[in-house]
Design a protein around this nucleic acid. Structure first.
Length: 644
RNA sequence: GCCGCCUUAGCUCAGCCGGUAGAGCGGCGCAUUCGUAAUGCGUAGGUCAGGUGUUCGAGUCACCUAGGCGGCACCA
């Protein structure tokens, strides 16, 4: 008997029945046989040493491919688990999947691991690789597998099989040598030696069994694994680079903001950081005004009764900053702006002619976020949303949502953030409203997105509990994605707070409220911007756009003149008259990421020129003060003003 | 909130097996006026996060507390 295999390049060859993918690879080339880690038969994973059970399309997966890395990492997780169990008897294995850059394994053990153990564990892992233990796949019946894992004290594994595997479904166990085995779907390498040694244990963390806070906390060991040592080194280098653009570090170095322990999750904005903030805010005001929004401001603190009416007291109490006055009133800082906006909507009668009413607020909100979730500017307890609520009729929703997508897309692009995709968060559990309501509300957002030329990616169960939502996923300069911008079609809150308008028919109707934000919170957005540009802001955003630096004090008077001239054109200019060498000044302002340094010495003072030097470049361009003023002012214009 | 790690001068960090604290940068002072990423000299600056304990003796060991960091959970 022979089988026929079709290769990705279209070639078709026949082999003896029962041939292994490894033998197929060996038949093609030695190099391939060395690099191959697994196979795919008609798209399904197949172990290298498992005899083929028929022909089909074969793909030999090599260690340097994305699929191949996944196999390596999966094996690394198993080797880690074996090493840990060798060194720490009594430790139970639970679950060890592949992640984006590596893998992790969750262990159950009473004693805590410490990162000091990593060295020993890695050493043991290398020994397992050196031993080149054959990795053997065996097929089990469900009850037998459960009994097996119970007998060796692996209750988590037994539980997983019991609950996850359907009766009758075969179970595969992969073993290293004859001692160690783990329930696994596979595929795995033929032997541990093929893993190589380009792996490293990275960090230790707590993780709940099955991701549920009520379950036992396990110990998770994270690792990374790559095809070769060079890839590993590159990865570690990338991590270092990412660390350099950490907004917390840059925020301190560039004197933008700081935080301190008396105000956890609260930001002290320094002059430069606030300048950045105000530039963004001014830009947003212009964009919103042009898009037909009105701006309002609602109270920071409101009575408990108000939050009871809005439903927040019942549903959101744990996240609210509640305070008590000497007169025994109970009040809360606002965690959201929406109920306040409804009050403005309700003030006086609204007609269908007033709709859609787009009500914006740079709303400062306070939320008591769990201490462990705080993270620099990215997750804070006091933040300002670029919030707005669009009150509209049901038949206006799609048009409004589509217009919002267009607006948000343009704004994100102006900040240099490319969109990866938009997600549609659908009905969660638990939720408010009937299935019919969710069918309709989800369809509205989907249709609106399509109207704007966008096909959303469905994020099952990711909606808010009162409404589905569209979320904008943006990609930054080093490929990370951030959720910035959201819109939700809310039928619940207007109803709950009694918002109404008079329609053409003279009767009162309920408006729909579209909650939406484009940047999210100013704090977080600034954090993202800092990381995206590594602190080197585009000219229009830079807190200090130009530093005028003198070479000699003889040029001081002229330098003051230069600064005044540039400021007159609206530029943010700092003057450096210190008695220091130019090289020193250049270095210092370059490290501060100032985009433009205008150097003036005797020569420039004599002919009223400036020597312009750009951040990151070494070239100097000497030009007249007048033309520098004109060119820089034009260049520093915010993107929306540049277009008009 | 939970798990692990960390906390030494304004910043970045060193400080062995427990013997009473160090560097660079920055600050301040003086000199230097020097043409594109660090001018020289001098000088001040620390309850070693806070607390309790062990010890003849604690930055160093143990425990507690707070904060930070990395995850987990949460994220109307």
């Amino acid at each position: 008997m022979s089988i026929s295999l079709k290769f990705p390049d279209g070639a078709e060859r026949s082999y003896d029945d029962g041939v292994t993918p490894l033998a197929v690879a060996e038949g093609i080339s030695k190099g391939l046989a060395k690099k191959v880690v697994a196979a795919k038969i008609d798209g399904a994973w197949w172990d290298l040493t498992r005899p083929l059970e028929g022909g089909g399309k074969i793909e030999l997966v090599t260690r340097d491919s994305a699929d191949g890395l996944e196999v390596l990492r999966h094996d690394a997780a198993h080797v880690l688990a074996q090493a840990v169990q060798d060194l720490f008897p009594g430790t139970q294995v639970t679950f060890g999947p592949v992640t984006e850059d590596g893998f992790y394994y969750d262990f159950a053990r009473d004693e805590p691991f410490s990162t000091d153990d990593f060295e020993r564990i890695e050493k043991r892992m290398r020994e397992i690789v050196d031993a080149d233990l054959p990795i053997v796949r065996t097929v089990w019946e469900k009850q037998a597998a459960i009994a097996h894992f119970k007998s060796i004290g692996e209750i988590y594994k037994a539980e997983t099989i019991d609950e996850v595997i359907k009766p009758g479904e075969p179970i595969t166990i992969y073993s290293h040598g004859d001692k160690w085995g783990d329930l696994c779907r596979g595929p795995h390498l033929p032997s541990t030696g093929r893993l190589g040694k380009a792996f490293k244990l990275m960090k230790l963390a707590g993780a709940y069994w099955r991701g549920d806070q009520n379950n036992q906390q396990l110990q998770r060991i994270y690792g990374t694994a790559w095809a070769d040592e060079k890839q590993l080194a590159d990865y570690l280098h990338r991590l270092e680079e990412a660390e350099k653009r950490d907004h917390r570090k840059l925020g301190r170095q560039m004197d933008l903001f700081h935080m301190q322990e008396e105000g956890r999750g609260m930001v002290f904005w320094h002059e430069k950081g606030l300048t950045l903030w105000r530039t963004i805010e001014a830009y947003m005001r212009r964009r919103l005004e042009a898009a037909g929004y009105v701006e309002v401001r609602t109270p920071q603190v409101l009575d408990r009764v108000f939050w009871e009416k809005s439903g927040h007291w019942e549903n959101y109490r744990a996240n609210m900053f509640v305070c008590q006055t000497v007169e025994e009133e109970t009040l809360s800082l606002k965690p959201m702006n929406c109920p306040g906006h409804v009050q403005i909507f309700k003030f006086g009668q609204k007609s269908y002619r007033d709709l859609p009413l787009r009500m914006a607020e740079f709303g400062a909100c306070h939320r008591y976020e769990p201490s462990g979730s705080l993270h620099g500017l990215m997750r804070v307890r006091a933040f300002t949303q670029d919030d707005a609520h669009i009150f509209c009729r049901e038949d206006q929703i799609e048009e409004e949502v589509a217009a919002f997508i267009t607006l948000a897309t343009s704004i994100h692009a102006d900040f240099g953030l490319e969109r990866s995709h938009i997600t549609l968060g659908t009905r969660p559990d638990p939720r408010a409203g009937t299935d019919a309501f969710w069918d309709m509300a989800e369809a509205q957002l989907l249709n609106a997105a399509r109207k704007a030329g966008v096909e959303p990616v469905i994020a099952e169960g990711d909606g808010a509990f009162y409404a589905p939502k569209l979320d904008f996923q943006l990609k930054d300069a080093i490929g990370r994605t951030w959720t910035c911008g959201t819109i939700q079609n809310d039928y619940v809150l207007p109803d709950r707070l009694g918002a109404e308008f008079v329609a053409e028919d003279g009767a009162k109707h309920k408006p729909v409220m579209l909650h939406r934000a484009i940047l999210g919170s100013l704090e977080r957005f600034i954090g993202i911007l800092i990381e995206n540009c590594a602190g080197a802001f585009p000219l229009w955003l830079a807190p200090v756009q130009v530093v005028v630096a003198t070479i000699t004090s003889e040029a001081n008077a002229y330098a003051e003149d230069v600064a005044a001239t540039l400021r007159k054109a609206g530029l943010r200019v700092a003057l450096d008259l210190r008695n220091e060498k130019v090289g020193y000044k250049i270095r210092e302002h370059s490290l501060q990421k100032v985009p433009v340094i205008a150097v003036v010495g005797k020569k420039e003072a004599e002919d009223r020129s400036v020597a312009i030097r750009r951040l990151g470049g070494e070239a100097q361009t000497v030009m007249s003060l007048a033309s520098a003023q004109e060119a820089l002012a034009a260049e520093a214009l915010p993107p929306d003003l540049k277009r008009s």
